[in-house]
Design a binder for these strands. Structure first.
Length: 736
DNA sequence: GAGTTTGAAACT
DNA sequence: CAGTTTCAAACTC
C-alpha cells in the first residue's frame, strides 16, 4: 500500500502529534486493539477511524500530500488511529522503494500471520510475484490491491492467481466466488476473534489494520473510479470491506446512477463514499504518483473537473476512466469492465490479464474471452472507448508506455492509430495532453457509450445499438425490458449467435476502412479518404445520405457501389464518386461541423491514409481499421475475428474482396469469435504487407512475433503479442 | 419532450 | 430475393 513513502514515518508522526490530544485519540488510546475492533463494529466513528485511518498512513507520501489539498489531508488524519499509526510505522520499516510491492508483502505477512485468511492466498500469490518492475508498476498496483483485498468477487479473478496458478480452481468462477466468500468469512472471523479475544495482541490489531488499509485503499480507489466512472468494483470485495470495516454508508446513493451491473456494488461502494469524498481526491494523486505518474494525474484532473458534471458525461468519463482504472488495476474484473463500459472486453485488457490469458487458457479465461469476444466484438471495434482499451492494452509494460496508452485512450477521437498524427496528437498520445484537450474528447467518448432506448426489442436485436455494438446496456440506457445485461449473458450470447448465424457480419463493424477497399471497387473516384466504406452499403432514399439516417454518413464514410441509395450526396463520398476528394481539401473544422452530430457510430480514422484533418466522427474510432493497433488486444479479448480479419488485415487475408466477396464473409463466419486467434494468426500474415492503413496488422502479424515474440517486439507491442495467443476460443478446444 | 421521419433489421 | 413490417435512432417542432 505504501507508495514510495520514504518519509512516511515523518508524515505519520506529524499527524499523530496533532491528534494526540484529541478526544478521539485518547479514546482510542485507552482502548485495546481488540476493543478498537469491537468499537468498529459498534460505532461508526470508530469504524471510520479504523477504516480510513490507514490510507493516510499507508499512502500518504510526500507527493501525495503535496498534490492534495491540505484540507483533505487533514481530514484524513483525523481518522488516523493509534493502532494504525503503529502499523504504519511498521510498514514504514518494511516499506520498500516500491510501495505497492511492499504493501502487498506486508499484507501477505499479515495474512500469513493470520494464516486463516483465505484471502491471504491471493495475497500470497501476489507476493510471490515480483512486483518490482516499475514498468509494470501500474499493473502491479492493481494487483497489489487485489491481492490485499483478495477480492472474492466472482467476476474478478485475481490476475495473480491466474498467473501463478492457472490450474487452480480460481479459474472457476464458482470456485472463486466460493473463495471470495471464504475470504470474507475468514476476515470476519478474524474480526470476531479479535473481538472475542481481548488478549489478541497488537499484532492482531496491526494485522487488522493492515487488512483494513489494504481494503481501504482498494475501496478508495474503487470508489474514486466508481463514482465518476462507475467503475465496476468487485461487489464481493467492496461488500467484504464494508462488512468488515463497517464503513459508514452515508453516501450510498452516490452511485445510484450506476448501471444495473453495479447495483450490487453500488450499495457497498457507496458505503465507502464517506471516505471517498475525502479520499477520492487523494486517490488520483496516489495513482498518479505511484502508478502512472503524471499521466494518471492528467486523467485525474479531468476526472475531478468533470466531477461536477458527473453523470452527464459520466458515460464518456466512465469509459475512459474505467478503462484506465482497469488497466491500472490490472483489470480486476472482467465482467466489471464489460459492464462498465458495456464493452465486455475491456475488463480483460490489462497487460497482466492479457498475459494471463495468453499464457493460460483456463476456463476462467475462456469465460472471459468468451464474454468479451463474443459480445464485445463490436464494442471493441466500434466504441471509441474500445479504442482506448485497445490502446491501453497495447501499451507496453513500461510505465511510459502505459501512460501513452492511457492517453491514447483518452484520445479516442483522434486517430487511434499509434502513430501520432500531429504534435498535438503526439502530446496527447503520450499522456501529456492537458485536461482541456481531453474533455472535448471525453464527450466524444460519451458518444461511444451507447445509450439505447429500445422498448420492444429487449435490446436483443440489432435495432439496439448497444447490442449491435456488442455492448451491454448500462445505466444511461433508457431501454425497457432489457435483456442485454450481464445477468442475461446466456440469452445475449444465444441471441447473438442466432443473429450471426443469419448474418455473420451482423456484429462486424459497419464501417470498414481499408485502402484496399478503393482498389477493390477499382474506382478511384469513389474512395473515401480513408478508403473506408460501409460494409453493406446504405439504402437511403430520402436522406440523400446526408443525414445520420445513412449509415455511411453516420460512419463518416462515403457511399460505395454497394450502396443502393438514391440521390446520394454523401459528403464523405457519394456513390457516384463525386465529392469524396473534396473532403480532403475541406478544412477539418468544416468537416467536423458536418459531422459534428455523429456521435454514435463506429469508425476509426486511419491517420496514415486519411488525413488527420478528416472529420472524425466521434465514434469513428469504433470500428474500423484502427483496430489494428488495438486489434491484437481487442480481438484477443473481446473482439473476434471479425475485426481482426476484416479490419486489421483485410488485404492480407482476403485481399480486396473484403466487402463483396462472399468469401470474406464466409471466412468471418467460419471464425467464431472465440477462434479469433486463428484468424489473427492466419489473417495477418506479416508477409503481406502491411498496409499503411493497418499498421496494426504489421504489428500483429510479424512473423517473428509469436507468442514468444522477440523482446523487441514485445517491448514495442507487448500487449499485442500477448493478446494474440489469448484467444483461446471458448468453443474451440483446439485453441489451447 | 412529443411527434415525425427515416432506414436498418426482422419477418414473411 | 423481394416485399412488408417492426423497430429505434435521427430529426423536427
Amino acid at each position: 500500500m505504501e507508495l514510495n513513502t520514504p518519509n512516511k514515518s515523518h508524515l505519520i508522526s506529524t499527524p499523530l502529534s496533532q491528534f494526540e490530544d484529541s478526544p478521539v485519540f485518547n479514546y482510542i488510546n485507552n482502548l485495546s486493539p481488540i476493543e478498537l475492533v469491537k468499537s468498529v463494529h459498534s460505532s461508526d466513528q470508530s469504524l471510520n477511524s479504523l477504516a480510513f485511518s490507514s490510507p493516510p498512513s499507508v499512502f500518504a507520501s510526500p507527493k501525495l500530500v503535496s498534490q492534495r489539498d491540505t484540507r483533505s489531508f487533514l481530514t484524513r488524519r483525523q481518522f488516523l488511529d493509534p493502532s494504525k499509526h503503529g502499523l504504519s510505522q511498521v510498514k514504514d520499516a518494511n516499506s520498500t522503494s516500491e510501495g505497492v510491492s511492499a504493501a502487498v508483502k506486508l499484507s501477505n505477512s499479515s495474512a500469513e500471520q493470520l494464516g486463516r485468511l483465505a484471502s491471504s492466498s491471493s495475497a500470497k500469490e501476489v507476493t510471490a510475484e515480483p512486483l518490482n518492475e516499475q514498468l509494470e508498476l501500474a499493473i502491479e498496483l492493481p494487483e497489489a490491491l487485489k491481492c490485499d483485498i483478495a477480492s472474492p468477487d466472482k467476476n474478478i479473478a485475481p490476475l495473480d492467481a491466474i498467473r501463478t496458478d492457472t490450474e487452480t480452481e480460481k479459474g472457476d468462477k464458482s470456485n472463486e466466488k466460493h473463495f471470495s466468500y471464504e475470504s470474507e468469512k475468514n476476515l470476519r472471523k478474524i474480526c470476531r476473534i479479535e473481538q472475542s479475544e481481548d488478549e489478541a495482541g497488537v499484532d492482531w490489531v496491526t494485522l487488522v489494520s493492515n487488512v483494513a488499509d489494504a481494503f481501504y485503499f482498494e475501496s478508495s480507489v474503487i470508489e474514486e473510479h466508481s463514482e465518476e466512472q462507475k467503475l465496476m468494483v468487485d461487489p464481493g470485495t467492496i461488500s467484504f470491506i464494508s462488512n468488515v470495516l463497517q464503513i459508514p454508508q452515508d453516501n450510498t446513493n452516490e452511485l445510484e446512477n450506476s448501471n444495473d451491473y453495479s447495483e450490487q456494488e453500488t450499495g457497498e461502494t457507496g458505503t465507502q463514499s464517506t471516505g471517498k469524498n475525502k479520499e477520492a481526491d487523494k486517490m488520483p494523486a496516489v495513482l498518479s504518483g505511484t502508478l502512472l505518474n503524471k499521466l494518471v494525474v492528467n486523467d485525474v484532473a479531468a476526472k475531478v473537473d468533470v466531477k461536477g458534471k458527473k453523470r452527464e458525461s459520466s458515460c464518456k468519463q466512465q469509459n475512459r476512466i474505467r478503462r484506465l482504472v482497469f488497466e491500472m488495476a490490472g483489470a480486476h474484473k472482467k465482467e466489471t469492465a464489460c459492464q462498465e463500459s458495456n464493452a465486455y472486453p475491456i475488463s480483460v485488457q490489462s497487460d497482466s490479464e492479457v498475459d494471463h490469458i495468453e499464457k493460460h487458457s483456463t476456463p476462467r479465461i475462456s469465460m472471459l474471452s468468451r464474454k468479451g469476444i463474443g459480445l464485445h466484438l463490436n464494442a471493441l471495434a466500434t466504441t471509441s472507448s474500445d479504442c482506448k482499451v485497445v490502446k491501453i492494452a497495447t501499451l507496453s509494460s513500461t510505465r511510459q508506455e502505459t501512460k501513452t496508452g492511457l492517453v491514447l485512450c483518452d484520445n479516442e477521437d483522434k486517430v487511434i492509430e499509434n502513430a501520432p498524427q500531429t504534435s498535438t496528437d503526439v502530446s496527447d498520445d503520450f499522456g501529456i495532453s492537458s485536461p482541456k484537450v481531453k474533455r472535448p474528447k471525453m464527450e466524444h467518448v460519451g458518444a461511444a457509450c451507447k445509450r439505447c432506448n429500445c422498448k420492444r426489442s429487449k435490446c436483443l436485436k440489432l435495432y439496439c445499438e448497444c447490442f449491435a455494438a456488442g455492448l451491454y446496456c448500462i445505466e444511461p440506457c433508457s431501454c425497457q425490458d432489457c435483456f442485454n445485461k450481464p445477468a442475461h449473458e446466456d440469452t445475449v450470447l444465444e441471441t447473438r449467435k442466432q443473429i450471426e448465424s443469419r448474418n455473420p457480419l451482423a456484429f462486424a463493424p459497419k464501417v470498414i476502412r481499408s485502402t484496399e477497399f478503393a482498389s477493390e471497387f477499382g474506382d478511384e473516384t469513389n474512395k473515401t479518404p480513408a478508403s473506408a466504406r460501409h460494409k453493406r452499403g446504405c439504402n437511403c432514399k430520402k436522406s440523400s445520405c446526408l443525414k445520420k439516417y445513412c449509415e455511411c454518413f453516420q460512419g463518416g464514410v462515403g457511399c460505395s457501389p454497394n450502396c443502393r441509395c438514391e440521390g446520394c450526396k454523401n459528403t464523405f463520398g457519394s456513390k457516384n464518386g463525386v465529392e469524396e476528394n473534396e473532403l480532403e481539401g475541406v478544412e477539418p473544422e468544416e468537416l467536423e461541423k458536418k459531422f459534428s452530430d455523429v456521435t454514435s457510430r463506429d469508425m476509426i480514422e486511419e491517420g496514415e491514409e486519411e488525413h488527420a484533418d478528416r472529420p472524425i466522427p466521434s465514434e469513428t474510432a469504433r470500428s474500423s481499421i484502427q483496430l489494428p493497433m488495438t486489434l491484437g488486444v481487442r480481438f484477443s479479448r473481446s473482439q473476434p475475428a471479425f475485426g481482426a480479419s476484416s479490419q486489421m488485415c483485410p488485404s492480407q487475408k482476403l485481399g480486396k474482396e473484403i466487402f463483396r466477396q462472399p468469401k470474406f464473409e464466409t471466412h468471418l463466419q467460419a471464425i467464431p469469435e472465440e477462434e479469433t486467434p486463428e484468424v489473427l494468426n492466419s489473417s495477418c500474415p506479416p508477409a503481406n504487407g502491411v498496409k499503411s492503413t493497418s499498421p496494426n496488422c504489421k504489428r500483429i502479424s510479424p512473423p517473428h512475433q509469436g507468442f514468444g515474440s522477440s523482446a523487441i517486439w514485445r517491448s514495442s507491442r507487448k500487449l499485442i503479442l500477448r493478446s494474440v495467443p489469448p484467444f483461446p476460443s471458448l468453443n474451440s478446444p483446439h485453441q489451447q
